[in-house]
Measured scan of single mutants.
Amino acid sequence: NITNLCPFDEVFNATRFASVYAWNRKRISNCVADYSVLYNLAPFFTFKCYGVSPTKLNDLCFTNVYADSFVIRGDEVRQIAPGQTGNIADYNYKLPDDFTGCVIAWNSNKLDSKVSGNYNYLYRLFRKSNLKPFERDISTEIYQAGNKPCNGVAGFNCYFPLRSYSFRPTYGVGHQPYRVVVLSFELLHAPATVCGPKKST
């Protein structure tokens, strides 16, 4: 009989979030998941669920729940959905087409922007091929755009693959930082360890 609440607040209220290319994953298990708490945590810009209804979450049980978190800019949030393409979905964080879970995003301009520009958040701009779903690539190998090998040196047709967002508070919403948490629900042929409040007794 599990009584402890799932530590969603640790994920959502973390002081620092990860850069999207090096997104963070927390496995959540053996706890009571009260998803209604999430609705009250922040004024969400996005709370979209796929393959599951957000209002039914509190009635369900899962084997595992994974919470992935990272920062992107406002106009990239739409890429965090099944079947999307674009720089983020292709080279940084890719959801599977049959994704079961929820994408939660909110504006973090007050936390993640600086007047002089916050350069701490990076994204991958160049990659030889698209990522597979939930693949994480943290390599910093020089990207070869031409025929000549780069031998690890940046220059003509040889690019450092990561680029930094420079978040400034005066930017338009599309270029402001957004914190994203992706909850993916895993149903294996194994005992369910993460249940809503109704199912945990």
Rank of each mutant, 00 (worst) to 15 (best):
N130I: 01
F160H: 01
V11I: 10
Q84T: 11
K48N: 05
N109K: 15
K114M: 15
F44H: 02
Y35V: 05
N87E: 12
F99W: 02
L111Q: 11
N151H: 07
A42E: 05
R16E: 07
N120K: 00
V32F: 10
A145E: 06
V194K: 05
A154H: 07
P7N: 06
H189V: 11
E141S: 06
V194E: 10
K110G: 08
V77L: 09
R168K: 13
K198D: 02
I2F: 14
T3D: 02
I138E: 08
A154F: 13
F8L: 10
T201F: 05
N130R: 00
S108T: 11
A190V: 12
T63C: 14
D59M: 10
D9H: 06
V37F: 08
G152S: 13
A33V: 10
E186T: 06
P54L: 00
F134C: 15
T193G: 04
G117S: 15
F134M: 14
L187G: 06
V115T: 15
Y91N: 14
Y119W: 10
V153M: 00
N40T: 01
Y35S: 11
N30A: 12
S164K: 11
P191T: 05
P191E: 03
V153N: 08
S166Q: 09
A154D: 07
G174H: 02
A190K: 12
L60N: 08
Y91L: 13
F45R: 02
A154P: 00
R163D: 14
S116T: 15
A42W: 09
T55K: 03
L122A: 05
I2Y: 08
I138A: 08
L41I: 04
R163C: 13
S116E: 15
V194Y: 06
A192Y: 06
V173M: 00
P43K: 04
P169A: 15
N87W: 12
P43R: 05
V173A: 10
Y39V: 05
R27Q: 04
A154T: 02
Q144P: 14
K199V: 00
D97V: 06
V153A: 06
Q144G: 14
P149M: 13
S116Y: 15
V52T: 05
L111K: 11
L122N: 00
F47I: 05
V37S: 00
P197F: 00
R27I: 09
Q144T: 13
L5P: 00
E76D: 14
N4M: 06
L188S: 06
F160Y: 02
A42V: 06
F45P: 05
L122V: 14
W106Y: 14
L60C: 08
Y119Q: 07
P7E: 01
P169H: 15
N58T: 09
F12I: 12
S166I: 12
S139E: 14
T3Q: 01
G74Q: 14
S200E: 02
L111M: 01
T193Q: 02
E141N: 05
A14R: 13
L125A: 09
S200L: 03
F134S: 15
V37Q: 01
S129W: 14
A18N: 04
N147W: 05
Y66F: 08
K110N: 00
L41C: 03
D75C: 10
N147L: 04
D90R: 11
F156M: 04
T15D: 06
T63K: 01
F156P: 03
K26I: 11
F126I: 13
P149F: 09
N13Y: 10
F44L: 09
F62N: 10
K148N: 06
S164D: 15
L187D: 13
T140Y: 09
L5N: 04
L122H: 05
P54E: 08
D90A: 09
A154R: 10
S184V: 12
P54R: 00
H175Y: 00
F156R: 13
N1K: 10
G117Q: 15
F156Q: 03
A145I: 09
N24H: 08
D97M: 05
S200K: 08
V71I: 14
A192M: 03
S53Y: 12
L131I: 02
E76Q: 09
L41Y: 03
F44E: 01
D97R: 04
T46E: 02
F156A: 02
L41E: 09
S164A: 08
K26R: 06
